[in-house]
Amino acid sequence: MNKKTRLSFLVLIVMITVSLSAEDAEKSRAGQVTFFYPMGTNGTESMEYTNSFSLNMVYGMNGGVDAFELGGVGNFNTHDVSGMQIAGVSNINMEETRGFQFAGVSNTNFGDSTGLIWSGTLNSVFGDSKGVLVSTINVTTGEMRGLQVGTLNYAARSKGIQLGVINVAAEGSDSLPIGLISIIKGGYYAIEASAGEALYGNLSYKMGVERFYTIFKIGGSLVDGPSFIEGDTFDKNDLILSYGLGWGSLIPLSGHNKLAIEVSSSKIVSNNNWDNEDEEVNFLNKLDINCHIGLGDHLSIFAGPSFNVYVADEIMGDEEGSLPIPYTFFDESYEGTQVQMWVGGNVGITYSF
Rank of each mutant, 00 (worst) to 15 (best):
residue 192 E to Q: 14
residue 153 N to C: 00
residue 292 H to F: 08
residue 158 S to M: 07
residue 81 V to I: 09
residue 66 D to I: 10
residue 234 F to Q: 10
residue 284 L to P: 08
residue 207 M to R: 06
residue 184 I to D: 00
residue 23 E to N: 03
residue 282 N to S: 15
residue 182 S to H: 00
residue 114 T to N: 12
residue 16 I to G: 01
residue 41 T to W: 05
residue 287 L to N: 04
residue 318 D to Q: 10
residue 280 E to S: 10
residue 90 S to K: 13
residue 253 L to W: 08
residue 140 T to K: 11
residue 129 S to A: 14
residue 194 S to M: 08
residue 122 L to K: 13
residue 178 I to C: 02
residue 272 N to T: 10
residue 242 S to M: 14
residue 352 S to R: 09
residue 110 F to P: 00
residue 44 T to A: 14
residue 169 A to C: 06
residue 168 V to P: 05
residue 69 E to L: 06
residue 100 F to N: 11
residue 289 I to W: 03
residue 245 L to A: 06
residue 318 D to C: 03
residue 337 T to V: 14
residue 308 N to K: 08
residue 266 S to T: 07
residue 199 L to G: 04
residue 98 R to Q: 11
residue 173 S to T: 06
residue 53 F to Y: 14
residue 155 A to V: 02
residue 248 G to L: 14
residue 137 I to P: 06
residue 119 S to W: 03
residue 134 V to D: 06
residue 339 V to P: 07
residue 68 F to N: 02
residue 211 R to G: 11
residue 336 G to E: 08
residue 89 V to K: 06
residue 113 S to M: 14
residue 176 L to M: 10
residue 159 K to D: 05
residue 237 N to M: 13
residue 259 L to V: 10
residue 59 Y to P: 01
residue 279 E to N: 13
residue 58 V to E: 12
residue 70 L to V: 14
residue 170 A to D: 09
residue 255 G to D: 10
residue 43 G to M: 02
residue 337 T to R: 12
residue 8 S to L: 11
residue 232 D to N: 07
residue 153 N to R: 00
residue 172 G to R: 02
residue 353 F to N: 11
residue 303 A to R: 02
residue 164 G to C: 06
residue 38 P to Q: 12
residue 305 P to D: 08
residue 281 V to C: 09
residue 96 E to F: 09
residue 40 G to V: 00
residue 6 R to E: 13
residue 97 T to L: 15
residue 86 I to C: 00
residue 315 I to C: 12
residue 98 R to Y: 03
residue 17 T to D: 03
residue 75 N to G: 04
residue 45 E to I: 04
residue 169 A to L: 04
residue 331 D to V: 12
residue 244 G to T: 13
residue 208 G to W: 00
residue 19 S to N: 05
residue 221 S to Q: 02
residue 80 D to T: 07
residue 188 Y to R: 03
residue 37 Y to N: 13
residue 145 R to W: 08
residue 228 F to E: 15
residue 352 S to T: 05
residue 95 E to H: 13
residue 244 G to N: 13
residue 120 G to R: 03
residue 237 N to K: 15
residue 174 D to M: 08
residue 43 G to W: 01
residue 219 G to C: 10
residue 243 Y to S: 12
residue 15 M to C: 14
residue 128 D to P: 09
residue 222 L to C: 03
residue 282 N to A: 15
residue 295 L to W: 04
residue 65 V to R: 04
residue 182 S to N: 11
residue 308 N to I: 11
residue 214 T to N: 09
residue 232 D to F: 14
residue 258 K to H: 08
residue 170 A to V: 01
residue 1 M to D: 02
residue 278 D to T: 15
residue 347 V to K: 13
residue 236 K to M: 14
residue 221 S to P: 05
residue 186 G to R: 01
residue 261 I to N: 06
residue 72 G to V: 11
residue 2 N to T: 10
residue 269 V to W: 10
residue 336 G to T: 04
residue 42 N to I: 03
residue 157 R to L: 02
residue 59 Y to H: 07
residue 240 I to Y: 05
residue 291 C to K: 10
residue 302 F to H: 09
residue 188 Y to M: 05
residue 234 F to L: 08
residue 48 E to P: 02
residue 298 H to E: 07
residue 304 G to F: 01
residue 330 F to Y: 15
residue 197 E to R: 11
residue 289 I to K: 04
residue 43 G to S: 00
residue 320 E to Q: 12
residue 202 N to Q: 11
residue 164 G to Q: 02
residue 287 L to A: 09
residue 31 G to T: 02
residue 338 Q to L: 06
residue 183 I to M: 10
residue 226 P to I: 02
residue 230 E to K: 13
residue 192 E to Y: 05
residue 149 V to Q: 03
residue 7 L to N: 08
residue 198 A to P: 05
